[in-house]
Design a protein around this nucleic acid. Sequence first.
DNA 1: GCTAGCCTCCTCCCTTGGTAGGAGGCGCCG
DNA 2: CGGCGCCTCCTACCAAGGGAGGAGGCTAGC
Lengths: 214, 214
Amino acid sequence: MYRLLVADDHPLFREAMVAVIARGLSGSETLEAASLGAALEVVAQHDDLDLALLDLGLPDAEGLSGLAQLRQAVPWLPVVIVSAEQHKHTILEALNLGAVGYIPKSTPRDTLLVALQQILAGQVYLPPDIMRTGTPPASTASPPEHHPLASLTDKQREVLAHMVKGESNKMIAYRLDIAETTVKTHVSAILRKLRVSSRVQAILLASERDDGSR
Amino acid sequence: MYRLLVADDHPLFREAMVAVIARGLSGSETLEAASLGAALEVVAQHDDLDLALLDLGLPDAEGLSGLAQLRQAVPWLPVVIVSAEQHKHTILEALNLGAVGYIPKSTPRDTLLVALQQILAGQVYLPPDIMRTGTPPASTASPPEHHPLASLTDKQREVLAHMVKGESNKMIAYRLDIAETTVKTHVSAILRKLRVSSRVQAILLASERDDGSR
DNA sequence: GCTAGCCTCCTCCCTTGGTAGGAGGCGCCG
DNA sequence: CGGCGCCTCCTACCAAGGGAGGAGGCTAGC
């Protein structure tokens, strides 16, 4: 049913996770990686993955840099962080980097399954503690998840419309009669909101959605 | 019917050209520009132009640099060079820069009309002299005009396929197991053959054509 | 009044994209 | 065999893209 990647350097935990998935998501296939490097290789060769479970604290990845690299390499792949650490700051950082969820290692098996299903369904999973404590992550967490494109401001949408036509920042600036730096600001905001890392990906995503054009 | 831009610093010649167009291509609209700067402004504000007639020797454009700038600014706009000069080298250079034709100023009115119609129909017009003298422009002139995409080599098509997915040069290199410099070489060749100036435009052009994907 | 969001613009900095030009290897064809 | 096209890779260089961070002005809402 689904194809998942479990990236964790602890063999036992990896196996446990795989077992949970096998039992809870029957028919799903799991790939494993013991390091970030291995994970990057795996994702490079499998473009049909549905989700990656990434452990924080892989030997070859400093903290969230592993997430950053993974997102960078394959922006289309949803990544959920699996970690022992539970600092609110780290979790928000991860979301900012494009993670679609954060699962504490202490999560009981059945809750874990619910979390995975929720994430595979396109939702975001966060540890209940965080959800409860009055934390309105606002900018990156709640709204964008469901309406990536809808969350753009008018001006951003306008800039995106020009990007889609293949125009450069400089040309967009000229047409909209604003400074190129301003265009860059908008573009950066767009990329962040759409969770992609290059204008090309933003364009593909945009023209894939709205597409009333042909 | 058509919207043309006539860029020439000589008012008399410009008027004559406009007159020829008015008589021969009834219903067509012509815009005028007396300098390259003016031409650039015009094209920036009119994205529905069909063709630009560019004089070589505009006050603010050194030789073919005007063509280069114009092509750079609006790659989608076909540009035909109108010039007094007739050196074979210049003509080939112009074609290399993406011009779709080269019309000597000495061309008689009726021939000029034929040339314009030919160009508007997607053909290329070159002064008969050049066509006759055994000059096989090969690389840029004859084949690409009709089949921009078809003229790509297998490898180039393969690279383009990855570009269309939104992948960076580095990622493509990794997937195809070749050096990034090689990917760049292919990308450059693709851009040249497709007559565009950025990967985004190449991608848009490519996904506009083949599109069996949706 | 103050705050929050948005738009505007800037500087500094690094990465990516793209061009130019050269060079070697391979295979095909006249 | 020699030439030609293609693929490969390289160096060097410049332009464009993108992130970080700060800053001012504006309006809407509390």
